[in-house]
């Protein structure tokens, strides 16, 4: 009934239909966000009685002075920069290849998708074994090339690298599926026309397929960046509850977790959360700004 007049009654009816979801969202998403913003300004606070004795900017002052927080921020940035480009490009390449083959395509898609449906805990445990310095698959493989065993998980120089490799591998499945969906949305005629226009395979890819795939690439990149900034479970399991050897894999969310659960510094944890939120917001806004020029919505 598109021609129906909007009345107070009809609005209330609409809200009634919306209310179950709305109430859940307000209680479990919106309220905690507001509360944690507020919490970041509580400098003297009893978590159990919810008594705020003092508010101020001390929590922020503390974390900006904390070398661990600085380290966590840098580590998180290294992690995002290390994971996102490779994860996106590799997923795109694999999707382009999978899209071209007919033989075993759905079998291979299943294989690539498996990491996504498997729990992070199970994956991290398997990778713990792969990375094991004495019995691990990776070191034994590298042994064939006469590369000395690397203590992946206990050497501070390699821990972040090990984490990045595992995260890229884990992200592939979902990203490939998204890229395949994006590819199948591109009209095949463009490829045929480009062929007649004299474009070779590489030129068709560069001038036609990749530009037309850009909305999906953008979506996957934004999604990967956000989940990169929020990395936690992989670290927790891979390094057995520690942020890596010598805090070499300490990230912002791990910092937040440690401040909250281990050190019971709720205000500090909340302040770290706010900083993380602002970083993600800023990076996402930059990406949207960039996308206006380079993403082609058809």
């Amino acid at each position: 009934m598109k021609n129906k007049k909007i009345t107070l009654k009809s609005t209330l009816v609409a809200y009634m239909y919306l209310s179950p979801m709305l109430i859940f969202t307000l209680i479990f998403n919106f309220y905690p966000i507001i509360k944690s913003f507020a919490l970041s300004f509580y400098t003297k606070y009893n978590f159990y009685t919810d008594q705020v004795s003092a508010i101020g900017l001390d929590n922020f002052k503390y974390i900006f002075a904390d070398p661990d927080f600085k380290k966590a921020t840098i580590n998180t940035l290294i992690f995002v920069v290390g994971v996102v480009p490779i994860a996106v490009i590799l997923a795109m390449i694999l999707a382009l290849l999978l899209y071209r083959i007919k033989f075993l395509a759905s079998f291979l898609k299943t294989i690539y998708f498996l990491p996504f449906v498997t729990s992070t805990v199970a994956i991290s445990l398997v990778w713990q074994w792969i990375y094991n310095d004495q019995y691990g698959l990776l070191n034994s493989f590298l042994g064939y090339f006469n590369i000395k065993p690397i203590n992946w998980l206990n050497d501070p120089h390699w821990a972040m690298f090990a984490l990045i490799i595992m995260t890229i591998w884990k992200s592939l499945g979902f990203n490939i599926i998204l890229f395949l969906a994006g590819l199948s949305n591109i009209d095949k005629r463009y490829d045929r026309v480009a062929q007649i226009d004299g474009a070779n395979t590489w030129q068709r890819l560069r001038f036609v397929t990749i530009p037309l795939l850009s909305p999906m690439t953008f979506l996957i990149t934004v999604n990967s960046v956000i989940s990169g900034f929020k990395v936690f479970d992989e670290i927790y399991i891979l390094f057995g509850g520690n942020p890596g050897p010598g805090s070499s894999a300490l990230t912002l969310v791990f910092y937040l977790y440690r401040a909250f659960y281990t050190e019971s510094q709720y205000g500090i944890a909340a302040a770290a959360g706010v900083v993380l939120f602002l970083i993600i917001l800023a990076v996402t806004l930059i990406q949207f700004w960039y996308s206006k020029k380079h993403v082609h919505y058809v």
């Binding site: 026309v193 480009a194 007649i196 226009d197 474009a199």
Partner: peptide, 27 residues
């Protein structure tokens, strides 16, 4: 051969000029 399709199949991300230039660019 030059070909024109029912659905035009113009490259949607390119301008009119870029579309016309595309075969020349490839050449």
């Amino acid at each position: 051969v030059g070909m024109v399709f029912q659905s035009y199949a113009l490259y949607p991300h390119m301008t009119v000029l870029e579309n016309i230039c595309f075969p020349l660019r490839m050449a």
